[in-house]
Every structure is written in structure tokens, then in C-alpha cells.
Computed example of a mutant assay.
Amino acid sequence: MNQNNINIIECPRDAMQGLSTFIPTQTKIDYINQLLKVGFHTLDFGSFVSPKAIPQMKDTREVLDGLDLSETSTKLLAIIANLRGAQEAVSYDQISYLGFPLSVSEIFQRRNTNSSISEALWNLKEIVTLCKRHRKEAVVYLSMSFGNPYGEYVPTTKVLDLAVQLREMGVKIISLADTIGAATLKDVEHMFENASKVLSDTELGVHLHCHPSDAYSFAKTAIDVGCKRIDAALGGLGGCPMAKDDLTGNLATESLIKALSDSNSIESNLNLEQLDLANEFRKKYIG
């Protein structure tokens, strides 16, 4: 497998958004500027959502103003939850990707974006059109793809049906998200084996939440099943504060890098010295 087949998405936004203590704006700027030196494909850096819902990200605009993109090839991704957020996000030239969470769980869709799945799909059509008009790319996260805490049964076929609808809508990047850390390794294998049959022309990614001790195994499995993009966060920080009370951390970047290096000589192509500096900063100032 060629190393260029896998895009690594570092997610400081997801790492920080659930922390109860507000991280100063300048600290966010310094951390993300350090991550920009590492060589990730994309940074999920902030979000244009209501500060009442996600108070930690209320300073995304100020953070964006402080970023130095002059010597990096890393692209920026911002999360949006509705058309209003998308309209603001597309006005920034620095942002390349708009990430939209579409849940396969009806309960979580309402909890996360205050809309039904059908309403979210309707809004998404307008967002995709907006992205094309402003030369941005929509990234859709199919959250709760591997289970939910509400007892809703969502078969793999429903997840894939939604993914096909997205592709037909013009969405070229879809990330299957395990929002609460419910997936097993076999679940990931099964999902991607089936998804690759119907979404061969899609950049299919995975956004996993898991215990740090399981991160390497999940990263290795995602690589082995042909995942084209993998989300991660240094230290395995983060989780979705809208999903449940106890956050389950993100896939740790350190584990992903080790899994890449162990997989048929795939190299991450990252600047590991700058990565170490970013990790030291994270430990000292973020968590």
C-alpha cells in the first residue's frame, strides 16, 4: 500500500471541545501553530456552532486569525452543525473543509443538531451547494455508525444507505464515526468490507473513540481494511460532549503512527521532531 493512500487528520478541536476548563485563545493558537509544522494532511481545528452548545470553541474566529499558514501544506477543517454555521465558515479563505455530523441515530441527531435525520439531510444539500460555490469540500461524519447509548438498533445497511445518499448528493468524503467507543475490531472490518463495495469512488474515513490501550489495534485494523483517512488526536484526548456524560477519548495519534510504521513499510511522512514538540506542549497546557 502506498503511504499517500492514507490521510491523517489531527483533531485538536475534538481533543479540546469537551474539556470543562476553558483553554485560553492564545494557548489554542500556539498549539495549533505547532501542529501545523508536523505535516498532517488536515487539522480539525475549530467549529462554528453555538457557544451555548460548545463553549470551548467560542473563540474559533480569533484562533483562526492567529494561525500561520504561510509554510504548511496542512489544510484546515471546521465543524458546522447547520446552514448558518456553514455560511460563516465558507467566508474564510483559510478553511478548506467543512465537517458536518450526520447521525444514523435519530435521538442523537436531535440531541446534537436539534433536527431530525431527514431535516439534517435537507440542510446538508444546501451546505454542499454552498461549499461548491465557495470552493470548499464537505466532509460528512456518520456518527453513531457502530452503536449508540439509546438502545436504537441501526443495521449496517442503514449506515451504508445513508452513505450512498450522501455520495449521490455530491459528498466525496465520508467518515464513519464511532462516537461513544462501542465498536469492536470485527465491527470495523465488517463495516469497511461492506462500505468498500458500494463506496469505491468515495474517500472513506474513520473517526474512532476508544481506550488508549486499544488504539493501536483499531488503527492497525483501519489500515488493513483499506481506510483512506483516519482521524486521531495526540494523547487520545477528547470525545463527544453531546453523546453521553463520560467522554471516550479519540484514537491516539501516537498509536496511529506506530501502526502505520508497522504496516508494510507505510510511513506517516510526518515531522516527528515537531510532533514531539507538539505533544510536550499538549501535555503541559492542554491535558
Rank of each mutant, 00 (worst) to 15 (best):
V63I: 15
Q26A: 12
T21Y: 04
G46S: 14
T21S: 14
S50I: 12
K58C: 09
F48T: 02
G66P: 04
L36C: 03
Q26C: 08
P51G: 05
T27E: 10
I23D: 07
Q34L: 13
G46P: 00
S47L: 08
S73N: 15
T60G: 01
G46I: 04
T27D: 10
K37Q: 15
D30M: 10
S50K: 09
G66K: 00
Q34G: 10
E71Y: 11
F40Y: 14
S50L: 11
Q26P: 06
K28V: 00
H41D: 12
G46M: 08
S47R: 06
S73R: 14
M57G: 02
S70A: 14
P51A: 03
G39C: 12
K75W: 09
L36R: 07
E71G: 08
K75M: 13
G39T: 06
Q34A: 13
L36K: 05
F45C: 07
K37D: 12
T42Q: 10
D65Y: 10
G46Y: 02
T21K: 13
R61N: 09
E71C: 14
D30Q: 12
T74H: 03
F45V: 04
Y31E: 04
F22M: 15
L69H: 09
I54P: 00
N33G: 12
P55T: 01
Q34D: 13
K28W: 02
M57C: 10
S47G: 15
P24A: 01
S50R: 09
T60V: 07
F40E: 05
K58T: 12
Y31G: 05
L36H: 08
T21G: 08
G39P: 11
F48I: 05
D44L: 01
I23V: 15
K58M: 12
A53D: 13
L67E: 01
Q26G: 08
L35N: 06
P51W: 06
D59R: 00
D65C: 13
Q34F: 08
P51N: 06
F48Q: 02
I29A: 06
I32R: 02
N33I: 06
D59E: 13
P51V: 10
T25G: 07
S47F: 08
V49K: 07
S73W: 09
D44G: 01
I29R: 08
T74Y: 05
F48C: 01
P55D: 05
V49T: 13
M57Q: 07
P24Y: 08
D59N: 11
A53V: 15
P51M: 05
K75A: 14
Q26D: 14
I32T: 11
L69G: 05
I54E: 04
K58N: 10
P51E: 05
L67I: 06
A53I: 15
E62Y: 07
Y31K: 05
F22L: 15
P55I: 00
F45Q: 00
K37S: 13
S47C: 11
K75G: 03
P55H: 07
F48N: 01
